[in-house]
């Protein structure tokens, strides 16, 4: 599945035009929602949480603990939205993928460009979220913030590629509700964004540790708070990178089998 990146870049204008035509619908959620989350969960709920900083994975208070978790969780939910219904739509509803592959573009380029667009969306959402967090004084250094931003792109792709592969293998959209309810929401709640996973029973803690979101949350928290365990950080990066590669190869193969008949 070699990708011709220069050819894939010809789709830039398609995605740009799409953003121009549709950005208004997402602008409120991009700016306001992060603010509401930090306010509600970090400041207001956090005001009641008098935890021992020793149990908060290096955070001095609950706001500092939960804010990086929220950034990573938001990267995840953005991706789930982008690689389910919109992808199915381009296969089944407006059939835009069929138009694309009738041009010199091939399936590898189509997948590459779509995933690149999802990363762009994650970049925008995460940049806004990190900017919203700045006034709350949870950052340890600008350097850490930049690394945390880059970590969101990796985390976003680590979700985007495998879920894209799952989406293109499904016959229709009826499985998406299940993916959201049994995949995304439990991960959102139990992967260490809101409380240390050490609070879970051992089997559940083990389960939480294999979720991509936990790796992303832990990595983001280390970078934002400036408490980096280098070995653990590399484990997170390697785990997420493996998901990106595996998911990407699968996504391309499955979509090829579906469109090229």
């Amino acid at each position: 599945m070699p990708v011709d990146v220069r050819r894939a870049a010809r789709m830039t204008d398609y995605w740009l035009v799409l953003v121009q035509r549709t950005w208004k619908g997402s602008v409120v959620s991009s700016f306001v929602v992060p603010f509401l989350y930090v306010l509600a969960m970090g400041v207001l709920l956090g005001g009641f949480v008098k935890a021992d900083p020793a149990e908060l994975e290096g955070a001095t208070d609950y706001l500092a603990f939960v804010a990086p978790g929220l950034v990573a969780a938001q990267a995840m939910t953005t991706v789930f939205g982008e690689v389910t219904y919109p992808v199915m739509g381009m296969i089944k509803w407006n059939r835009a993928y069929y138009g694309m592959i009738a041009s010199p573009l091939g399936v590898p380029e189509v997948v590459f460009a779509h995933l690149a667009f999802v990363v762009f969306r994650v970049a925008v959402v995460s940049a806004v979220f990190l900017a919203v967090m700045a006034p709350f004084g949870v950052f340890s250094s600008p350097y850490g913030v930049v690394l945390a931003f880059l970590a969101q792109l990796l985390l976003g792709l680590a979700f985007a590629a495998p879920i894209y592969a799952l989406t293109v293998s499904l016959p229709n959209e009826s499985g998406f509700a299940l993916i959201f309810r049994l995949g995304m929401i439990p991960m959102f709640l139990f992967s260490g964004a809101f409380f240390p996973i050490a609070n879970l029973d051992a089997p559940l803690e083990a389960l939480a540790r294999v979720t991509p979101l936990w790796h992303g949350v832990d990595l983001t928290r280390m970078l934002v708070l400036g408490e980096v365990d280098v070995v653990m950080a590399l484990v997170h990066v390697a785990y997420l990178a493996a998901l990106v590669l595996g998911g990407w190869v699968l996504a391309t193969r499955i979509l090829e089998r579906r469109l090229i008949t």
Partner: peptide, 13 residues
């Protein structure tokens, strides 16, 4: 190629 079923992008003008 002018396919049997339209594959126009309905979100674009």
């Amino acid at each position: 190629v002018c396919p049997q079923e339209d594959t126009l992008d309905t979100e674009l003008n």
